[in-house]
C-alpha cells in the first residue's frame, strides 16, 4: 500500500474492520497514524463533552410509586359523571327532609291547639254527650 489511507479506510479501521495491510501501513506511516489519532482525539472530546453534561438525580422510585395516568384519568371522568347525580340526590334528600319537617310541625301545632291531651279526648267526648 503506497498511498495514504483513505477516509473510508480510517472509518473501517475505527469500526473494527482491521486488515493486515492497514495495520502495517499505520505502523509505517506517521501521517496516517496522526490522522487516525486526530480523529480518535475528536471522538474522545465528544465523549468528554457528554460526560460533562449535568445528570439529574436518580428518581425511578418516585415514578415507581406514582399512579398510572389511566387510573387518574378514569378517576377524573368518574368524578365528572358522578357529580351531577350526587348533587341531584342530595337536593332530593333535602326536599324530603323539608316535607317531613313541615308535617311534623303541623302535628305539633295540632297537638298544641287541643284543649285536652289526646289520651283524654274520649273521656271529654263522653262527658260532653252525657251533659247533652
Amino acid at each position: 500500500m503506497n498511498s495514504h489511507l483513505s477516509s473510508d479506510q480510517i472509518c473501517r479501521w475505527l469500526a473494527g474492520e482491521r486488515g493486515t495491510e492497514e495495520h502495517r501501513h499505520l505502523r509505517d506511516c506517521p501521517a496516517c497514524q496522526a490522522e487516525l489519532d486526530q480523529f480518535q482525539h475528536t471522538l474522545t472530546g465528544f465523549r468528554i463533552s457528554l460526560e460533562q453534561s449535568p445528570v439529574p438525580a436518580a428518581s425511578y422510585a418516585r415514578k415507581r410509586q406514582a399512579l398510572p395516568r389511566w387510573i387518574l384519568a378514569t378517576g377524573a371522568l368518574a368524578l365528572i359523571v358522578a357529580a351531577p347525580a350526587y348533587w341531584n340526590a342530595r337536593q332530593q334528600r333535602a326536599a324530603e327532609q323539608a316535607r317531613a319537617d313541615e308535617l311534623l310541625l303541623e302535628r305539633v301545632n295540632a297537638s298544641l291547639s287541643r284543649s285536652v291531651p289526646a289520651s283524654m279526648e274520649p273521656l271529654m267526648q263522653l262527658i260532653s254527650k252525657e251533659s247533652q
Binding site: S7, D8, I10, C11, R12, L14, A15, G16, E17, F39
Partner: peptide
Amino acid sequence: VKVHLYRALRAVR
C-alpha cells in the same frame, strides 16, 4: 454492528 458503525463514522467524518 461494524457495518452500522462504519456508516455512522463515514457520515460523521
